[in-house]
Simulated assay, not measured.
Amino acid sequence: MYRVLIVDDDRAVRYMLKRFKCWDLFGFMLADEACDGKEALNKLQADEFDIVISDIKMPGIDGIEFLSELRSMKNDICVLFLSTHSDFSYAKQGIRLGVFDYLIKPLKDEALCEALERVKVYLDGKNKQKGSSERGSIFLENIQAFYSKNDEKKLVSDILSGSLDAVNKGRDICNNLIDFMGVDPARLAILLENIISDIDESIYKLFPWIKEVESIVSIGVFKGDDTILIERQFLDYISSWVRIISKYELHQPDSLMRKICEYVLNHIEDDVKVETIANELYVNRDYIGKVFKQKAGYHLSEYITKVKMEHAKYLMSKGRYKNYEISEKLGYKKPDYFTQLFKGYTGYTPTEYRKFTV
Rank of each mutant, 00 (worst) to 15 (best):
K333V: 15
D10G: 04
R71L: 05
K57Y: 02
C78K: 15
M181G: 01
E141S: 12
D50M: 01
Y324L: 13
R96K: 04
L82P: 12
D87W: 03
S72M: 00
R187V: 08
A278N: 03
L30V: 13
E33K: 01
A31F: 05
V274N: 07
P350Q: 02
K153A: 06
D198S: 14
I228E: 04
N127Y: 03
I210K: 12
D184P: 12
A91W: 00
K74Y: 11
Y122L: 13
D10E: 10
A186G: 02
G63Y: 00
I244K: 08
Q144C: 05
V52L: 05
V52N: 07
S89D: 09
L5Q: 11
K290H: 04
E262P: 01
I238A: 09
L140R: 11
D47W: 15
L191E: 13
S327A: 02
E280N: 10
D124T: 03
D151K: 13
D109S: 08
F180G: 13
I210D: 14
I238Q: 01
F139H: 15
A115T: 03
E214V: 13
E114Q: 10
S202P: 09
I190C: 08
N168I: 08
V7W: 13
Y102V: 05
E328D: 04
K74C: 05
Q144R: 06
T349S: 15
I178T: 10
D62M: 14
S255L: 15
D158P: 06
Q45H: 01
Y204L: 15
I196N: 11
A166V: 09
A91Q: 05
I203V: 14
H85D: 04
V358Q: 08
M257I: 15
E231N: 11
V283M: 10
L97T: 13
I199V: 05
F66Q: 10
L164C: 09
Y204W: 00
E193Y: 12
R320A: 14
L315N: 01
N323P: 08
S197G: 11
K108R: 15
I230F: 03
M1E: 12
V4W: 06
P335W: 11
E65F: 12
L265R: 00
K105H: 01
Y345G: 08
I219R: 12
P208K: 08
I199W: 10
E141N: 13
A31M: 10
Y337P: 03
L265G: 01
I77D: 14
N150P: 09
I244D: 03
G98W: 02
G182R: 06
L30W: 09
L206T: 15
C35Q: 11
I64V: 00
G125D: 00
N176A: 15
M316E: 02
T346S: 11
E134L: 03
S54E: 04
Y102K: 04
Q233D: 10
Y263A: 04
V291I: 06
